[in-house]
Design a protein around this nucleic acid. Structure first.
Lengths: 125, 125
DNA sequence: CTAGCAGGGTGGAGTTACTCCAGGTCAAGC
DNA sequence: GCTTGACCTGGAGTAACTCCACCCTGCTAG
C-alpha cells in the first residue's frame, strides 16, 4: 500500500504521515525498490491510532514513547498507564466542550432575543 | 485590576494575555500612569470568553473577527453565525473524543486481559 | 520516441499559538 | 540606599503541522 492510500484510509494527510515517520513514529516502515514508502496493514492500524490520539491532542512525544515501549516486552503496564492518563485527559476536554457549549448557547440565545425584539418595532420595550 | 489578577481570574497566563493584546483581541485595554495594563470587569469577561473559545480551539483570527464585529452595531447576525459555527465544531470534537475513548477502552481492556491472564501461570492457555 | 503529467521523494521555509527569557523600569519594604 | 518583586518590551524557541520548490520515475498520447 502506498502513501496516498494510507493517507486516505487513516484520515491523515500525506505530509503528516511523512512528518510522523521523520518523528520516529513508524520505525518499522519499509521502502520499495523505487524508494517509495510501503505501508502494511499493521502500519495502517498504527496510523489510525495516531489519528485518534492526535485528534484529541496527545503530544507526539507521548505517542512516540508509546511506540517505543511497544517494541519492548514487559512494558504492558507502562503502555496501559499512558492510555489511562489520556483517558483522563479526555474527561478534561469533555468538560471544556461542555463549558464552551454553555457559553455559546447563552450568547446565541442573547442574539436571538435581540432579533426577535427588533422585528416587532414596539412591544413592551 | 492588574495583569496577574486578570490571569488568575481568567485561567489564562500573563504571557498569553499580553500575546492576545498584541494580537488585537483587547482593543479597549487601558494603561495606568506607570504604563501597566489596567483590566476592567469587561476586559475580564472578554478574557474568560477567550479562554473558553481557545480551550475548544477556535482560531485566534476568528476570535479577532468576532471582537471587531462586536465594535460595530448591526453585526448581531454575523456574530451569531460565528458562534453557531463553533457550536457545530464542538460536536465534531465531541465525536473525536468519543472515538478516542472507544479506542482507549478497548486497548486498556486488552492490557487488563494480558495481566489477568499472566497472573495465573496456566489457565486454558 | 519524446513530451507531458501524476505521483512519489527530499529539504527547508512558513504558520499558529503560545512560552520562555534577557534586560529595563519603578514602587515598596527593610 | 538597596533589594525585591511585579510589571514592561522585544525577541527567540517550540509543537505540529502545512506548503513549497525542486528532483526522479513510470506511463500514456501523439
Amino acid at each position: 500500500m502506498k502513501i496516498s492510500e494510507a493517507a486516505a484510509q487513516s484520515g491523515l494527510s500525506v505530509d503528516t504521515i511523512r512528518f510522523y515517520e521523520r518523528a520516529g513514529l513508524l520505525p518499522r516502515l519499509h521502502r520499495g525498490a523505487d524508494g517509495h514508502r510501503v505501508f502494511t496493514p499493521t502500519d495502517l492500524r498504527w496510523l489510525r491510532m495516531f489519528e485518534r490520539l492526535r485528534a484529541t491532542h496527545m503530544p507526539l512525544k507521548v505517542i512516540q514513547s508509546y511506540v517505543e515501549l511497544s517494541r519492548e516486552p514487559d512494558s504492558a503496564l507502562e503502555r496501559r498507564a499512558i492510555l489511562e492518563a489520556h483517558r483522563a485527559e479526555l474527561d478534561t476536554q469533555q468538560a471544556q466542550i461542555d463549558a464552551c457549549r454553555e457559553l455559546l448557547d447563552e450568547k446565541i440565545r442573547h442574539y436571538d432575543g435581540l432579533t426577535t425584539l427588533a422585528k416587532p418595532p414596539k412591544k413592551a420595550g
